[in-house]
């Protein structure tokens, strides 16, 4: 490889870190040329795992409700909260939750972002509007992540009132994407 090993034999490292002109800490940085030019040996590997997740009791019911065009939460009589997303137990009271509650398909933008990247850090051609929506009928501050649509980037703001844009009933599959996005529910 023709590179010296910038290893531990470069002195008393604990003191080295503190010296005015410290010697090289150990470790050999690869330059982009070495990496892209494959001047060192690489072993490439690709794998694919396939999963089939049970949606569970709480989220399974939530997704079933979405398929029917409704958003549901779970109530806890211990802390008097309506939990969205629903769960079969309350993490604060640590007891089973009590009842299914129909909440509304409207809410308020808690926070938002305009995303220019995909999940592999590549750039998107069209930015995606993402938000945490506090759902009306759930306890204050409770909601979930979703997308925003039918709105210009410059119009989105924290506190914006929104309503779910549902997919047509025959296209719904019992998934979070049965809601296409949330859109402004009143004049901006």
């Amino acid at each position: 490889m023709g590179r010296s090993h910038a290893g531990r034999n470069c002195g008393d490292y604990g003191e080295v870190m503190g010296m005015e002109n410290p010697s090289e800490p150990p470790g050999t940085a690869l330059t982009p040329d070495e990496w892209r030019g494959k001047e060192i040996f690489f072993r490439n590997f690709h794998t694919k795992f396939t999963y089939s997740w049970d949606t569970g009791v709480a989220i399974g019911h939530f997704l079933e409700a979405l398929k029917g065009g409704k958003i549901v939460g779970r109530s806890c009589s211990g802390c008097n909260r309506v939990l969205v997303p629903p769960r079969m137990f309350c993490e604060l009271c640590f007891r089973p939750t009590d009842d299914w509650i129909d909440v509304l398909d409207t809410g308020v933008v808690n926070t938002f972002s305009i995303s220019y990247v995909n999940n592999d850090a590549s750039r998107r051609e069209q930015p995606l509007f993402v938000a945490v929506i506090n759902i009306d009928g759930a306890s204050p501050g409770m909601g979930f992540l979703h997308l925003l649509g039918e709105v210009d980037a410059g119009q989105i703001h924290v506190g914006m009132k929104v309503r779910a844009k549902w997919k047509p009933a025959h296209e719904r599959t019992g998934a979070i994407t049965d809601i296409s996005y949330f859109k402004p529910s009143e004049g901006l």
Partner: peptide
Amino acid sequence: FLERPLGVTLLW
């Protein structure tokens, strides 16, 4: 169930 189908990234 709730987040990955939306295309979520850590940056979000």
